[in-house]
Amino acid sequence: MKTHKLRAFIFMALCCDLGLFAKKLIAPAANFITEFLHIPGGIATSFSLMFLIVASSIIRFFGCATLMAVVQSILALCFGMTGSMGILAPIGYIIPGIIIDVILFLFRKKEKDISLAIMIASILASVSACLTANMIVFRLTGIILLLYVFVSATSGSICAILANELVRRLKPIILSPKELS
């Protein structure tokens, strides 16, 4: 296996783990906000999805985020980190992964600068994750659901700024000079 490919796979694996465990790290701060707003979540997931977006933006192949989401869902099931979703947790991981892949694929064709693609992907992936959780677990309706969706979208947009910065800094390290050009 070529060195740069191996480096890419190691980076993807690292982002999978970071995405999975980052949720736990940010949970106390996220819970502080969601408890104040009286909604069941929506912030920590956006931070977790940021790592999928970072990896998919650097390692440019279609299906990267979905593949990572599948790995994450298997790890979550193995470690019992499925939360309230239980056995249905893989749906909550895979749907945002597919959305990230589709958005990045569509934008890459049109624009060289992917900062907007990262922003849209992060917002839509966060919203899809929150809607999936709502469909499976929370069953919120009305203004509470609207607030839950917008909190997810806003935290997704803020995480996109961080993702953009990480992509800019990590790209030269992860990719070979040939891939960069």
């Binding site: 707003l37 907007l116 922003m119 917002i123 203004i143 947009s157 803020i158 700024i161």
Partner: peptide
Amino acid sequence: MKKRNITIIVVLLIITAIIAAIYLLGRN
């Protein structure tokens, strides 16, 4: 940092704040 990205964040923050205010003020 792109201006359009900041605009998106600001717009989302404003909408979220408005919805949060409506929800929290009307909550029992």
